[in-house]
Amino acid sequence: MKAIEFNAYGGPDVLHIIDVAPPHAGPGQVRIRVRAAGVNPSDWKRREGQYRAFEDVRFPAGLGVEGAGIVDEVGPGVRDVTIGDTVFGFGENTMAEQAILTHWARKPDNLSFEVAACLPVVSDTATRALDQVGVAEGQTLLVSGAAGGVGTAIVQLACLRGITVIGTASATKHDYLRALGAIPTTYGEGLEERVHELMPDGVDAAIDVAGSGIIPELIRITGDPTHVLSVADFSAEEYGAKFSHGPPVDPARLFAEMTDLCSAGLFTLLIDRSFPLDRAKEAQQVSEAGHVTGKLVVRVA
């Protein structure tokens, strides 16, 4: 089968599409014939070696942690799916023609493979960030970098919790944020003043999605470092703020909730661009450059 692999830390050029033996499902796992795999900033950060302090990478290493496809092998102890079922979830090396899923859910017929493949990371990250930052119904949340995949999920899930959301993005994406339910504003110099104009009574909490070095400013805006959280800036804790990262908590429950929300039209996920497997390197370059609205996806079949 064809798969994306890299043999050393580095830039996009270390990625190669090669022929490898297919993996096999172990206990509590399933193997899928991959139809689509989500693209995440964690992919290129892992490839660059940014996670080496707390995560072991064995070379050659694959790429991709989420995907959707058709079950073609079921590991021992798995009882909830059979060969031929369509599923999505968290997995290993999902940018390949076949991949192992460690946590999954059935894909509803009204959900495309592309959107389903991109749901696990954004829904888990957004839910965990909202739970950890300490913001409740009736309060106000500032989301820095609100138009990307995780930002898109945070805005919608926060609004469903009865939270007022201010989201930062470039001016061209403000209509997109309004459609999600957020009050948009631009990022950059003067953010504190703009937020104060929008919310004279203050902001209760802030989540940094972009990792653009904005933690000190978010602390000034909220007035409390414990009410600021980042999912992208490793230095957040140096300022007294929180840094949120995995592993996922109760993914089966989360996937069930997300499919219900999607089916009811209460949650949407825009696919900004789609790439074939042999252009996974380009997908990472686009992700690393930033300015993605919604998610990027790699189509495998």
Rank of each mutant, 00 (worst) to 15 (best):
V143I: 11
Q156Y: 12
A126P: 05
N110C: 06
L130H: 09
H103Y: 15
P120K: 03
G167L: 10
W104Q: 00
V135G: 01
L141N: 03
G145I: 11
A147C: 08
L141M: 07
A117Y: 06
G149A: 10
Q132P: 01
H103S: 13
V135T: 12
L141R: 02
E114K: 13
P108R: 00
L141T: 11
A105Q: 02
V155I: 14
W104V: 01
E137G: 06
E114I: 10
V133C: 06
G148W: 08
G148Y: 07
F113K: 01
W104Y: 07
Q156L: 10
L119V: 10
E137W: 14
G167Q: 07
N110H: 12
V155L: 03
L142Q: 06
Q139T: 03
I163M: 07
R106Q: 03
G138D: 07
T125E: 05
L111Q: 06
A146P: 04
V121L: 14
A105C: 01
A146N: 02
C159K: 08
R161L: 09
T164V: 10
S144V: 14
V150T: 13
A126V: 10
K107C: 09
R106E: 01
A116E: 09
V143L: 01
G162R: 10
P120D: 07
V143M: 00
R128M: 14
V150D: 01
W104F: 08
N110L: 04
L160P: 09
Q139C: 07
S112W: 10
V133K: 02
V135Y: 12
T168M: 04
S123W: 14
P108I: 00
A158P: 03
G151N: 05
R128S: 12
A129K: 01
V133W: 11
L111W: 15
R106L: 15
V115I: 04
T164W: 08
T125M: 10
G162F: 14
V115G: 00
P120S: 06
P108F: 07
Q139M: 13
L111H: 11
S123M: 12
V121T: 14
G145C: 08
W104R: 00
G134C: 11
A146V: 11
W104H: 01
T125N: 06
L111S: 02
A136H: 15
A158W: 13
V165K: 02
Q132M: 15
S144H: 15
L142N: 09
R128F: 15
A158Y: 11
E114D: 15
N110P: 00
W104E: 00
T164Q: 12
P108S: 00
G162W: 15
V133S: 03
L142G: 09
S112F: 13
K107I: 15
A105W: 12
T125R: 00
R161A: 08
W104I: 01
L119H: 04
V122E: 01
E137A: 14
G145L: 07
P108Y: 08
V122P: 02
V135S: 02
L141S: 06
G134K: 11
G162T: 11
S112E: 05
A147P: 03
G134F: 15
